[in-house]
Amino acid sequence: MKQCKDLKIVAVEHPNDGYVLLKLTDAEQLPAIHAGQFVEIKVENSPQTFLRRPISVNFVDENRNELWLLIQVVGEGTRHLANLQLGDTLNVLFPLGNGFSQGVAGDKVLLIGGGVGIAPLLEYAKQLKQVGATPYLLLGGRSANNLLQLDIFRQFGEVYVTTEDGSMGEKGFVTNSSILQLFNSSTSPHRGGNAQRAEGVSFSRISCCGPKPMMMAVAKWAKEHQVKCEVSLENLMACGLGACLCCVEKTVKGNVCVCKEGPVFDIEELTWS
């Protein structure tokens, strides 16, 4: 059930200049949250920020009844969020959207994140591990200091890193990563045939969140290699509830609301070329 309430800020961390990690809690038990779902935050005392701001659920700490949000400062609204203090409250409408595919035991899922798009993948990696699936993490950033929460990611699966400037992991974009090359070499030149794939790495699915050009490149790679792939979109939103029809994405079924039918879509549903 969706709710709209004030959550209490129990930690404000600044992993680097451009990001803030907010940890929120409530006197009541937080509702069940599915990885990839998001919240709509009301930004108080910021006259320039009229509408709520959509932010993915980064992590849920069930033991501490905490919900984490990892936010990159890009404008006025996120700047205000970065200035919040311990003990402040945040009015949050949540949980919204559908989230990533539910994993099953034995699944090998490659999670690819770019920039702040890594945020929802942390909770997803946790949920996949909980059901007995194996998450592999491929995280890309401009440079080493954009790559956050790596230690926590490592608790849930193998982590591969690319940076554009080569300051950490492999140099280049996520699509240049050796984990993909490994997959590549094991399947080509004759594609198909699971036995062949098993020699390298084979994935049941790729789940991806990041800047649109990155997601498009990953989607293209997945199509070429016949791997199922889902992406999490960040269309501009007004209501977050499927009521205003502002956030639509063109799909094979026509225009659909990203906030309600998504934000995660199978690339086969999208009309990306």
């Binding site: 009229f50 509408l51 269309n235 501009l236 029809l245 956030c247 639509v248 994405e249 225009n255």
Partner: peptide, 15 residues
């Protein structure tokens, strides 16, 4: 089908 995306722009005190 409605119009293409983007369909919304936030403006001062409104949209």
């Amino acid at each position: 089908e409605g119009n293409d995306y983007p369909r919304m722009a936030e403006t001062a005190c409104g949209m």
